[in-house]
Design a protein around this nucleic acid. Structure first.
Length: 365
DNA sequence: AATCCGTGGTC
DNA sequence: TGACCAAGGAT
């Protein structure tokens, strides 16, 4: 791919005139750039900004983040998904305090060695925050270069990934990596979009091979998407003596270290009501019964499409007055009986958060 | 290499 | 409505 680095200056000009006014672009402070890059993984910048601003208010610098309880960091991340990012961010802040004297490292290798930072993020922070000559190849860059240079192999597979990386490195204008990387990504997000790319307004259309060949919609070459699995799940809000039972999930697996209401898959032939009672018995050893059905919530996560049946539960049989029983936990690391107004302070998976926000304490007290 | 890990927006 | 997909990383 030696043909055209001719379009790079056009891209840099386009970026200078069209870049969005994002908060971390004010001073390009390494901590702010780092947080923004972690938050932006597998989502879009527009969705990140409000989280970013709140995060920086709560944890204004690396020391504040390192000193914060992990629960507080996860609460600030609630709704963003991929919560290992928040756990790794927190762990990395602690490591920067101990191993780097509280100063964010400026060398590519040192950045890459931090937990939660891979090739992309290391290149992004090194270039954007420190001006290093490093590439940052994300899905935008893959798409833009696949179209501009007509890459005919899937960019998500090793061969295509390597190809894009080589091109990106070859085109990198020395000492201008920040603008270069940001320009490629911003251009991919705003003009050279996955669907409906705005070729009519494209500043590099004249140099785009896919455009020239009339195959823009065939670039990048996509790999087949994974099948979506429907999932029926039951969960229960156990209310006793004006308290609600919640448990903290295990550190590993989905929603690690977040809080939740007990529940689980509805087995074939099983009613949602039976499932929630069974799950409560298995996860807590509590004997419960359904008081009312609260809601049916639909939401997706990774490759699943969940139908979440939500119930209000009470303890079955003689409940020993207002005493709050102690569970035998099998699927959680700890549990609490909390007042309904305290639910707002805990980080829940999105499906459970939807349930909480839907009732907001109005029904269960 | 393949799988896991969330969520919400878009068309 | 449902399939696709986004400033990825860890194992």
């Amino acid at each position: 791919m030696t043909e055209q680095n001719a379009f790079i200056p056009l891209l840099l000009d386009w970026f200078a005139a069209n870049k969005r006014d994002l908060p971390w672009r004010r001073a390009y402070d390494p901590y702010a750039v780092w947080v923004s890059e972690i938050m932006a993984q597998q989502t879009q910048m527009d969705r990140v900004v409000s989280y970013f601003n709140r995060f920086m208010e709560l944890f204004p610098d690396i020391a504040a983040l390192a000193d914060a309880p992990e629960d507080a960091v996860l609460k600030a991340w609630e709704g963003l998904g991929y919560y290992s990012r928040a756990r790794n961010l927190h762990a990395a802040a602690k490591r920067i305090m101990t191993a780097h004297g509280g100063v964010f490292p400026g060398e590519l290798a040192a950045i890459r060695a931090l937990p939660g930072i891979g090739d992309y993020t290391a290149g992004a922070v090194a270039s954007i925050a420190f001006g290093r000559d490093a590439v940052a190849v994300d899905a935008n860059v893959q798409r833009v270069l696949a179209r501009a240079c007509d890459i005919d192999v899937p960019v998500k597979e090793p061969a295509g990934k390597t190809r894009v990386m080589e091109i990106a490195r070859a085109l990198l204008p020395s000492s201008r990596a920040r603008e270069y990387n940001e320009a490629l990504m911003e251009f991919g997000a705003l003009v050279c979009r996955p669907k409906n790319p705005d070729c009519a307004a494209c500043p590099i259309a004249g140099a785009c091979q896919a455009k020239h060949l009339g195959i823009v919609s065939d670039r990048p070459v996509l790999t087949k998407a994974k099948d979506i699995t429907p999932l029926n799940v039951a969960t229960g809000v156990l209310l006793h003596a004006d308290r609600i039972f919640i448990q903290k999930r295990l550190a590993k697996g989905a929603w690690g270290n977040l809080w939740e209401f007990p529940g689980g898959r509805i087995e074939p032939g099983e009613t949602p009501q039976a499932a929630v009672v069974r799950e409560f018995r298995e996860e807590t050893a509590f004997a419960t019964e359904v008081a009312t059905k609260l809601a049916v919530i639909r939401h997706g996560y990774t490759t699943f499409r969940v139908t979440l049946h939500c119930f209000l539960l009470r303890l079955a049989g003689e409940s020993n007055g207002n005493a709050l029983p102690t569970p035998e936990l099998t699927a959680a690391q700890q549990s609490r009986w909390v007042r309904p107004d305290e639910l707002a302070g805990y980080a829940f998976p999105a499906g459970h958060r939807k349930l909480i926000d839907q009732f907001d304490g109005s029904l269960w007290l």
